[in-house]
């Protein structure tokens, strides 16, 4: 796992945290709309299920990423900020 993935979200130069894309594998039905809309960050595996780039979404792709999230028919694709999936025990 890259440090960026572990951190979940990274601070952009402006200080704001950029979100990461995540897939809920239980909800996802693998029709691959996300990979069509956002090939820069989502590829499909040999069985048609999405593999997302775990790094923070680059600013220039943020709008496209939001569109892919909105288009996911099962609400499986999400944009998450660090605190939303921060469940490690302290």
């Amino acid at each position: 796992m890259s440090p960026a993935t572990r951190a979940g979200a990274a601070a952009s130069p402006g200080g704001r945290r950029r979100p990461v894309l995540r897939v809920d594998p239980i909800a996802c039905d693998g029709r691959g709309i996300c990979a069509e809309l956002l090939p820069e960050l989502v590829t499909l595996d040999d069985w048609g299920f999405p593999v997302v780039d775990g790094r923070p979404v680059p600013r220039e792709l943020a709008r496209l990423a939001r569109r892919a999230v909105a288009a996911c028919p099962t609400l499986a694709l999400r944009l998450e900020h660090e605190h939303e999936h921060e469940h490690e025990l302290s």
Binding site: P25, I26, C28, D29, G30, D45, D46, W47, G48, F49
Partner: peptide, 12 residues
Amino acid sequence: GQCGPCVFGLRA
């Protein structure tokens, strides 16, 4: 049987 990569990947 819930997650595609587990169902199809492990079978493959």
